[in-house]
Nucleic acid binder design. Structure first.
Length: 826
RNA sequence: GCCCGGGUGGCGGAACUGGUAGACGCUACGGACUUAAAAUCCGUUGGGUAGAGAUACUCGUGUGGGUUCAAGUCCCACCCCGGGCACCA
């Protein structure tokens, strides 16, 4: 058979799989469908072994499901619009983003192919291709028709380094999610998708996502941020204007001692009294120079200024001063609050700073609240609150909703933290927003027959980062699709998260030219049975995809409204304690690794490195260990194959010796374990160790039992089932060994083995014997032994008797087939 | 501050519903093979005490308490690490 040399056969089998088109999935099949999906990459250069982890996990599942009789759809593609391509064009002068991107795709495709992935390459999807972004634009126009895409002016996040606006989700602690630059606020007119219309459903349907990790679901719930509360309207003294606030704590209404407006609120202008104009405008000026993220961060100093106006508290007609305060968010609620310093820490700090009175309306059951240092935010009993006095405050909240309504003071409402999704990007390398501005007709969507709105190729990139579309006459000069008059095209492109929010649908009909996908086909294949990717997309991509799926569902194109049934988020691979990156120089390349150890070792080590959902440190001697394992397997088969070639076996193999029984039991224990590890919990690390255990046992059988009395049937059974179980992880070596055993079909078409329960039966059991809970020995009894027999055996064992004699036996606990605990005294 | 994870040998990590802690792999050490080395193979590898030795005893899963015949696993309090949210009224 020769030495183990993965280079001798890995390429060979990849070619065979490719030529046979074995991974090309039929649209329909007798078999049940299984849609297995890995998050597609942004083609920014070359992949490292950290990226590979995602694909390896996905491939194990795909191959495993296939061997279990499923028609598996396992596609791959590229999220290929985006800034790096454009930045490369700016940096390197003449490279067009498309050229740069396609070149990278080429590199990555080849890398992926050397990893032996079982993708259906006929379904490859490239989001920057005209065939794809035509349909991204189409989705936009459909949403525009429904009023789900709209343009509005407002404060937006601007990244000065990326030279574009960002969605809320793309701002992390006031910094650009991509490049880390501090984000600025700008007033701009931009396109939005109305994700807030779906807030309630996006929240509720999280409960349907049983196959999603809890942490991701929690993150999404927090991000949507639903609060139930009341809108309460306050009259303004000496004015017809009203001031409406949102509160989740209507029980504290009697404790309001001031009102506060966000500095951006237009009410500031109208409510400021002439004598306060100068001071207020000085304050606003100062605030506007401050960084908004710092200003509104928790722990920032509370600052504000009195407007001179007073509101009237509708519950008790008290006169309440109105302030402008830096801690009020204009975007949330009504941009104004009622402040209850006694029971809200933020209001408390503000009141202390400006000497505003603090009025207790909730107190602990048996004493007064201590308000000397902080607000009392616990529950308690209502006081100073008219007819609500004496009531538990939680109860009072419920009563208050009704009372406000009856007296026409306010209403129960719901607020969300989620904001609409800003999708305009002032960049070139994205799908153009398919809108034309006409002086007469306004913003008009480009009709389907004129899609795609193509990106012009003859563009020059400026070092300022300004989009070349802005000055590209041939692009922006157009005619109105409605009236035919001269009109101007929108020059902004879409956020690339729009591209990736529907790609899983395109895989179903990747080449269809008349529609984005076929409804029947989509309903057949989706939702995705297993989605695999990084946690970093917990909110962004996964929330957007859920939203777009619901929109497309509501339009009647699909019959499901959640895209991903099961989600698995894998951990990252680190090297030298840091994420792999070119700049840190700690990248482990798959090519070098494959050259040295082969693809199978790379794949299997990636799985063996630790629990797949956790981050792990790449260790060169770890992969050495896997390589040694591969070698041992190879050498074992070299011994076995000539012996078993002409042997047949079935489940009734005659086992003559204890060694044979033990060995077959080990095999079936491992079938049970490995199946459970893969199917139930994605514990590939323990699945691999199970295979190692099995190979160790087999090896010692081969070494310790004379070759003349080897049980050939048993060896054949193990030889076959072992490679089948190893094949999802190490498809090449197993394919090679499979054929060396004389098989005339691919191992991928083999059936996953089933546990033979009778192989698991043991004749002799080792029962642990404890005295007072401490292990003092084990006794061996026949598997059918009753409690009495176990006791008898234990008591006749002198090592155990040593601890019992001369002592009073209090009780004996017997756990069948496992353990005997003798409790003694004295 | 709040919400999730998680703390187990020299290291990565095992341990099903409480029932022999440390599977599997790495490292290190010892041995075999070799002129030598690499590779390979065999053995040892949580700490302590006793013993020449097989072995015996004892302590051990972040810390302190508790429940239980029995706790890495359950309960209470605390410490540390990772992640998410964070003035959302």
């Amino acid at each position: 058979m020769g030495d183990f040399n993965p280079q001798d056969f890995e390429k060979k089998w990849q070619k065979v799989w490719d030529e046979k088109g074995i991974f090309n999935t039929p649209q329909r099949s007798e078999k049940p469908k299984y849609y297995n999906l890995v998050m597609f990459p942004y083609p920014s250069g070359t992949l490292h072994v950290g990226h590979a982890k995602n694909y390896v996990i996905g491939d194990v599942i795909a191959r495993y499901k296939r061997m279990n009789g499923y028609n598996v759809l396992n596609p791959f593609g590229y999220d290929s619009f985006g800034l790096p391509a454009e930045n490369a064009a700016i940096k390197h002068g003449n490279v067009h983003p498309e050229e740069w991107t396609l070149k990278n795709i080429e590199i990555i495709r080849n890398q992926i192919k050397t990893l032996g992935m079982s993708y259906d390459w006929n379904r490859e999807v490239i989001t920057c291709s005209e065939e794809y972004y035509k349909w991204t634009q189409w989705i936009f126009t459909k949403m525009f028709e429904k009023g789900l895409a709209y343009k509005k002016k407002g404060a937006v996040n601007w990244c000065p380094s990326c030279n574009t606006v960002l969605a809320n989700e793309q701002v992390v602690n006031g910094h650009c999610e991509r490049c880390g630059t501090e984000v600025e606020l700008k007033q701009l007119e931009q396109w939005y998708l109305k994700i807030t219309d779906y807030a309630e459903r996006l929240l509720n349907d999280i409960d349907k996502l049983e196959g999603w990790p809890e942490n991701v679901k929690t993150m999404q719930r927090n991000w949507i941020g639903k609060s139930r509360g009341a809108e309460v309207t306050f009259a303004i003294e000496g004015s017809d204007e009203k001031l409406t606030v949102f509160t989740t704590r209507p029980d504290t209404l009697f404790g309001v001692t001031f009102m506060a407006l966000a500095p951006e609120s237009p009410l500031v202008e109208s409510l400021t009294k002439p004598e306060m104009k100068e001071e207020v405008s000085d304050f606003l000026k100062r605030i506007s120079l401050e960084d908004r993220f710092k200003r509104t961060a928790e722990g920032a100093k509370k600052e504000g200024i009195f407007t001179g106006s007073y509101a009237v508290n509708p519950v008790n007609n008290e006169k309440i001063p109105i302030y402008v305060a830096n801690y009020i968010l204009y975007e949330y609620g009504t941009g104004a609050i009622m402040a209850v310093p006694a029971h809200d820490q933020r209001d408390y700090e503000f009141a202390k700073e400006y000497g505003i009175s603090i009025k207790t309306v909730i107190k602990p059951a048996d004493c007064d609240p201590d308000l000397s240092e902080k607000a009392y935010t616990e529950d308690g009993v209502m006081v100073n609150s008219g007819k609500f006095d004496g009531m538990n405050n939680r109860k009072a909240i419920e009563k208050m909703f009704d009372w406000l309504k009856e007296n026409e003071i306010g209403n129960e409402t719901i607020q969300y933290k989620l904001r609409d999704w800003l999708i305009s990007r002032q960049r070139y390398w994205g799908a153009p927003i398919p809108i034309v501005y006409c002086d007469d007709c306004g913003a008009v969507a480009v009709p389907e027959e004129q899609l795609p709105v193509k990106l012009p190729k003859d563009v020059k990139f400026e070092s300022t980062g300004k989009s070349p579309l802005v000055d590209h006459r041939d692009f922006y000069e157009t005619t109105c699709p409605k009236c035919g008059k001269k009109a101007r095209r929108e020059v902004d492109t879409m956020d690339t998260f729009v591209d990736s929010s529907w790609y899983y649908l395109r895989y179903v009909n990747p080449k269809m030219s008349e529609k984005p996908f076929d409804t029947d086909d989509a309903n057949y294949w989706l939702p995705v049975d297993q989605y695999i990717g990084g946690v970093e997309h917990a909110i962004l991509h996964l929330l957007y995809s859920r939203f777009i799926t619901k929109v497309i569902h509501d339009m009647g194109y699909i019959n499901f409204d959640e895209p991903f049934k099961n989600l698995f988020t894998q951990g990252m691979i680190y090297k030298d304690g840091a994420k792999m990156s070119k700049s840190k120089g700690n990248v482990v390349s798959p090519e070098d690794t494959i050259k040295r150890y082969g693809t199978d070792s790379l794949r299997t080590y990636t799985l063996f490195i630790g629990p797949p959902e956790k981050d792990a440190e790449w260790n060169d001697s770890g992969i050495e260990g896997i390589y040694r394992f591969m070698n041992r397997v190879w050498n074992m088969y070299e011994k076995i194959i000539p012996v078993i070639k002409d042997t047949e076996y079935n489940d009734n193999i005659v086992l003559k010796t204890k060694e044979e029984k033990d060995l077959r039991r080990k095999l079936h224990q491992m079938i049970e374990k490995i199946t459970r590890d893969i199917e139930g919990s994605f514990q590939f690390n323990t699945a691999v160790s199970g295979l190692m255990e099995l190979s160790n046992e087999l090896n010692s059988y081969l070494n310790n039992v004379d070759e003349n009395i080897w049980n050939k049937e048993l060896l054949k059974e193990i030889a076959e089932k072992f490679v089948i179980m190893l094949s999802p992880m190490s498809p090449h070596i197993t394919e090679e060994l499979w054929h060396k055993m004389g098989k005339d079909y691919l191992i991928l078409d083999a059936k996953w083995p089933k546990t033979d329960k009778k192989a698991l039966v043991v004749d002799e059991l080792n029962i642990v014997v404890q005295v007072n809970g401490k292990v003092r020995g084990t006794v061996s009894v026949s598997s059918g032994a009753a409690e009495a027999e176990v006791k008898e055996t234990a008591f006749s064992d002198e090592r155990i008797m040593k601890f019992i004699k001369d002592k009073e036996i209090i009780k004996i606990i017997y756990v069948p087939k496992k353990l005997l605990n003798i409790v003694v005294k004295g």
